[in-house]
């Protein structure tokens, strides 16, 4: 059911918000140009969420959860922003950011795999820790060296962001589709004890999954900083909620053992369209509604999460797909 339901919701949403934004088209080519820039913007804006959501999908497959993604991306971005801009940024800040992201992801994984801390607790504490480290690195400052780095801007534009997202999606999808690694991850999520008795190296797999989230967090930090150009210690708070809602909406079960990357893709787009749409409908809102229409975003996000999980629980028998 979800295979056609999600694209349908997405289309309905786009239609609704296009009407609410008061956009009028004179010709077909006019509409074409509008939607071209609309989708380009949408993809650039949601690139960090998309990248993280791919990682979160795999984490949820293991019956885990990663609440620290927002803080992780913020910390990587903060550390990278402390380096001087210029060509050397590419071979100082960027590799260091990558190493840091992998380390932070692996820290989550190590806490969960080696110390047996429940994922939600481990990542809740690292969420506080990483955010605290952001303040240690940045203080109250807001830094923006990114625009002075040659060719960095490209990552935030449609060609760069789309390339990065699509490449990640294709690599993950190809790699995961029918791979033994994914089967092991799904089994681990379905029943960790059975997985261990079946000879699956559970600890190593968990470590790999959370490190993968770290890697994707690094890519998300690249696209985020390239687009927003500045970063502060409190950037990206609340990102984890958006990511989790998107993933769950896309059909990944929180109890583990099933999930779909394509569904996640739709889930992220649905939320991004809503986000952009509510902003675009601000004028309509002030004329017709007694409250600020942007407040509806919280309400809708909450409702979408509940509806998404409810739909998932109705589809328990659905076969897992990558």
């Amino acid at each position: 059911m979800r295979r056609w339901l999600l694209p349908l919701i997405l289309l309905a949403e786009i239609a609704l918000f296009t009407i609410l934004s008061g956009q009028t088209f004179i010709s077909a080519s006019d509409a074409g140009a509008y939607f071209q820039s609309y989708f380009a913007d949408l993809l650039c804006q949601s690139a960090p969420v998309l990248l993280l959501a791919f990682g979160m999908t795999i984490v949820l497959m293991t019956a885990g959860i990663d609440l620290s993604v927002g803080s992780l991306v913020a910390l990587v971005a903060c550390v990278m922003s402390s380096f001087p801009a210029g060509t050397e940024f590419w071979w100082t800040a960027v590799p260091l950011g990558l190493a840091l992201a992998l380390l932070l992801g692996a820290t989550n994984g190590a806490l969960i795999a080696w110390l047996d801390v429940p994922p939600i607790i481990a990542t809740l504490s690292t969420m506080i820790l990483y955010r605290g480290l952001c303040f240690v690195v940045m203080g109250d400052l807001e830094k923006s060296p990114f625009l002075s780095v040659p060719a960095y801007e490209w990552l935030g534009q449609i060609s760069g962001a789309a390339l990065l997202v699509l490449l990640t999606f294709i690599i993950l999808a190809f790699w995961l589709n029918r791979s033994r690694w994914l089967r092991e991850i799904l089994m681990l999520g379905g029943n960790p004890i059975a997985a261990r008795y079946a000879g699956i190296p559970v600890s190593r797999r968990i470590l790999q999954v959370y490190s993968l989230v770290g890697l994707l967090g690094f890519l998300a930090a690249l696209t985020f900083t390239a687009r927003n150009s500045s970063v502060s210690a409190s950037s990206l708070t609340g990102l984890e909620l958006q990511v989790i809602v998107a993933v769950v909406l896309g059909g990944t079960r929180v109890q583990g053992g099933a999930g779909s990357l394509l569904g996640t893709f739709y889930g992220v787009l649905i939320i991004a369209v809503m986000d952009e749409g509510l902003r675009g409908a601000a004028k309509w809102g002030t004329e017709h509604l007694p409250f600020k229409i942007s407040h509806l975003e919280y309400v809708l996000l909450g409702l979408l999460l509940v509806v998404g999980v409810w739909l998932n629980s109705r589809e328990k028998t659905r076969r897992p797909a990558a």
Partner: peptide, 18 residues
């Protein structure tokens, strides 16, 4: 709704503030 508490209350986190 027979859903995990963490999901319902995660939804509540956004919904109630809105």
């Amino acid at each position: 709704l027979k859903m995990p508490a963490i999901i319902i209350t995660l939804a509540g986190l956004a919904l109630y503030r809105g």
